[in-house]
Amino acid sequence: MPDKDAGTPRVFLYRHGQTEWSQSGRYTGVTELELTTNGVQQVLASGKILVGAGKLMDPKNIARVFVSPRRRAAHTFELAFDEAEQRLLKEAGKVSTTDRLAEWNYGAYEGLLTKEIRALRKDHGLDGERPWDIWADGCEGGESPAEVTARIDSLIEEIRALHQGNMHGENPSDVVLVAHGHLLRAFTKRWLGYPMDFPLSMMLEPGAIGVLSYQHHSIDEPAFLVGYGFPVQE
């Protein structure tokens, strides 16, 4: 972060590692899938570089860790932080599981590919004018964009209350979200104040970490970091 923004609270978006369905492109909401061997290595690699004392995600700067209720997210947290770091965070009451970070409920589209979803919707007489877009249309038997927005906004409100008064690093106030591809991209849209159907194309690879913060130390100027200068290693 530039020197002028040093101390500004951050929100780290930690996507879980690869599963068989994320590898094949199948929509994975409530289905419990384990990380693949490659998924485990993805999280270990990012954690080794970015998590720990003196690194980007330094436990001493973390105020809260919110984890999705899905096992693949919990496993990612367990891999990213070593046992001592996990124990310290948990003993301080900083780690919690929340349904607000569960992946989008895909309903009838669970386990399907995009092309299969669009074919199904065509059979149902939907999308005559344009192809299905989850950000605008939601999921049959699952969640609508408005429902996902409501639960994300609730979490953002809680995070902003934590950050208020700590915009210059007065207290440790970094937040870590361990969750899923669609959900974390949806969170980014809402963090920036955009509606779900706003055309903001985003990519977040399995095991990757994104960063949100604020401009000018202002709670009213939420932003995302396109690039990041990492801490100097002694």
Rank of each mutant, 00 (worst) to 15 (best):
G181W: 04
E147D: 00
L177R: 07
L162S: 10
R185F: 08
R151H: 02
E129Q: 13
L155C: 03
G107H: 00
I152M: 06
D174M: 05
R160A: 03
E140L: 13
E158D: 15
E103I: 04
E170F: 05
G107E: 01
A186W: 03
A179C: 04
A161F: 07
L162W: 04
A186V: 03
G181C: 02
L120I: 01
C139K: 07
Q164F: 07
L155K: 02
G138A: 07
G141F: 08
I134V: 09
A108Q: 13
A146D: 14
L120Q: 13
A179K: 02
N171D: 11
N105D: 15
E116P: 09
G125P: 01
G165A: 13
G128A: 12
G169K: 09
A146P: 01
G165R: 14
G128T: 13
A186C: 15
S173I: 10
V148A: 15
E140A: 12
E140M: 08
I117G: 06
E110T: 06
Y106Q: 05
Q164W: 02
L112P: 03
M167A: 04
V175K: 04
I152N: 11
V148C: 11
P172T: 07
I117K: 08
W135Q: 14
G111D: 09
S144C: 10
N166L: 12
W135Y: 15
T188E: 15
G111M: 11
N105M: 06
T149L: 02
D174E: 09
N105H: 12
S144N: 09
A161R: 15
L113E: 05
I134F: 13
E143P: 07
S173P: 02
G107W: 01
T114V: 09
A136Q: 09
Q164R: 14
S173F: 07
M167P: 06
